[in-house]
Amino acid sequence: MMHIIMPGLQTLVQDSGRDGYYALGMPPAGALDQRSYTLGNMLVGNDPRAAGLEFAFMGPAIQFQSDTVIAVTGAEVTVLIDGEPQPMWASVPVKNGQTLSFGPMTRGSRGYIAVRGGVDVPKLSGSRSTYQTVQFGGHMGRALKPGDVLPIGTQIHSDDGHGDRIRELDPKYLPSLDASADLAVVTGLCNYRFTPESVQLFFESDFTVSHEANRTGYRLIGPALEFVERDVPFGAGSDPSNVVNLGYPLGSIQIPSGNEPICLLRDAVTGGGYVTFGTIISTDLDALAQLKTPDTVTFTSVSVTEAHAKRRHAHNELAQIAKSLKYPWVFGVERKETA
């Protein structure tokens, strides 16, 4: 059992997400920085889809009511057990009665706590992730509160014979957590609505992360973009940035009125009536999720072939890490087909 003494600013049960419900209007939810979340599970020998905790900016204080092993990954933060500093990116044994707490977060914005066995909340529609918008999944569909008690499960990797070994990530695999990120974008969707000059301007500009940056999306501040003239299509709405409501891919960038692009993350609405410019590739969403106001973002245009090459590169690196940690990684098990 994990007893929540202090919840931090916003601590949520998250996992690899709830795939296959886009057509019903439900986004996947799940850990925003999937790479850090996955590495946490590797470090404690969990199933790669085991549920952990995601905390934003300020970590929780948690008393453990059994002996276990944890790992903290993601944003750079001081990890304390009964007040003693502990390493991040490593498995750390915790004894019954000990308390995990956190010092200030120095870089990045989201931390992850993996606990051996995973957080045992009910699995709803194939996932334990919290989708706060409709209070669904996770622990009672909401962020943790003082006094909450979370059971620890048995979501241990079935082929992991090294569960009790101390694992530590080679520092060369640490995320950059820089205050600026260059993100790869596949253009398409409603990109034709923008003038060629505006498309060029988008890729040449620095954008600043605004205060509106949360699990549903990141609103960025940058130059105003212009639209191509048109006759308003039936059903679209009169603003040049309005379109007949359409689907928003995870990671897509919508630009209401041509100002302040919004990058849609894992709790975003699945569709709507604003023009979409293109889509940030999935492996670059991890870096975006570690930014905060007033960090900066630039974008680089890539083809879908390049996007898939980058994805393969990221997966190959995870496979290398798994090997170095003696973790029985099975390629692709982190996603489930549900359609």
Binding site: G188, Y192, L246, G251, T283, K310
Partner: peptide, 29 residues
């Protein structure tokens, strides 16, 4: 960026990052 699907009735295909395919038949309802 776009591929035109033939066969009349329209169909403009593009990619939504590395995981999505988006096909727009036309801009109006």
């Amino acid at each position: 960026m776009y591929r035109q699907l033939s066969g009349g009735g329209g169909g403009r295909l593009s990619f939504g990052g590395d995981e999505f395919i988006f096909v727009e038949l036309s801009e109006e309802m």
